[in-house]
Computed example of a mutant assay.
Amino acid sequence: MAIITRLSRLLRADLNAMLDRLEAPELVLAQAVREMEQAQALEQARLRRLEQEAARNEQRQAEIEQRLAQHQDALEDCLAAGQDDLARAVLRRKLEAERALARLNQSADENNRARTQCQARLSEQDNRLNDLRARAAVFETDASNIGGEDVDFASAASDSPPIRDADIEIALLQAKRQQEAAA
């Protein structure tokens, strides 16, 4: 039995030594660096997409805020003229714009969180990549001495309930109260 155990141990040792020689550690390290660079390129592309989406959201927010100001002016004109029917229509558009702005703000918050996470992953990947490159450089110098790594946020728009007539009536009463308080 002892001879079989010793032979078995000898064969495993020879097999492991042969596999170590076939594995070529410098090639494994070079492949790991390439894979890390690819992962980092993908993460950078994702970050660019998130930044573009943030810019589009900011532009949309500015447009909606401008429309809100126009609706407020129109509402004040309608209330001053005693045109409640027109005021209701303006209030509907104003409420829709306010809801759209709220959705965009929520989308912007989600985008900011995603960008922060993406930047953290990029930083971590950069550190690991630098570490792998340093290991590869050390290995290469040793070898030369011896032998010479997308929110849609538009989906949030479908979550909003429709504006009801009761919402418009409440907004009309509030606008009248604000106008009376201002007068």
Rank of each mutant, 00 (worst) to 15 (best):
R60Q: 08
Q61Y: 03
Q61F: 00
I64L: 14
E65T: 08
Q66K: 09
Q66I: 00
R67K: 11
H71P: 00
H71E: 09
H71S: 12
Q72A: 14
D73N: 12
A74Q: 12
A74M: 03
E76T: 10
E76S: 12
C78Y: 05
C78I: 00
A80H: 08
A80P: 01
A81Y: 06
Q83I: 00
D84V: 11
D84R: 12
D85A: 15
L86H: 00
A87F: 04
R88Y: 05
L91P: 02
L91T: 07
R92A: 03
K94L: 08
L95Q: 08
E96S: 06
E96M: 09
A97T: 02
A97H: 01
A97E: 03
A100Y: 00
A100E: 14
L104G: 05
Q106M: 09
S107I: 10
S107G: 13
A108F: 04
N111V: 11
N112E: 14
R113Q: 14
A114K: 03
A114L: 13
A114N: 01
R115F: 02
R115T: 11
Q117I: 04
Q117R: 12
Q117F: 13
C118Y: 01
C118I: 01
C118M: 14
A120V: 02
R121H: 11
L122I: 15
L122F: 03
L122M: 06
S123Q: 13
S123F: 09
S123M: 11
E124A: 13
E124I: 01
E124S: 08
Q125G: 10
D126C: 00
N127E: 15
N127Q: 15
N127W: 09
N127F: 06
N127S: 14
N130L: 12
N130M: 10
L132P: 03
R135Y: 01
A137N: 13
V138T: 13
V138W: 08
V138G: 08
F139D: 01
E140V: 10
E140R: 14
E140Y: 08
T141I: 10
T141H: 11
T141Q: 15
T141W: 07
A143Y: 08
A143E: 13
A143M: 14
A143W: 14
N145F: 04
I146F: 12
I146W: 04
G148P: 04
G148C: 01
E149I: 10
D150T: 15
D150H: 13
V151W: 09
V151F: 09
V151Q: 12
D152W: 07
D152S: 08
A154R: 11
S155H: 02
A156F: 12
A156Q: 11
A157C: 05
S158K: 14
S158N: 04
S160R: 10
S160V: 15
I163N: 11
I163G: 01
R164I: 03
R164A: 13
D165F: 06
D165Y: 05
D167P: 02
E169P: 00
I170R: 14
I170W: 06
A171Q: 03
A171C: 03
L172Q: 08
L173F: 09
L173W: 09
Q174Y: 01
Q174A: 09
A175H: 05
A175N: 05
K176N: 08
K176R: 15
R177G: 12
Q178P: 00
Q178E: 14
Q178G: 05
Q179G: 05
E180H: 02
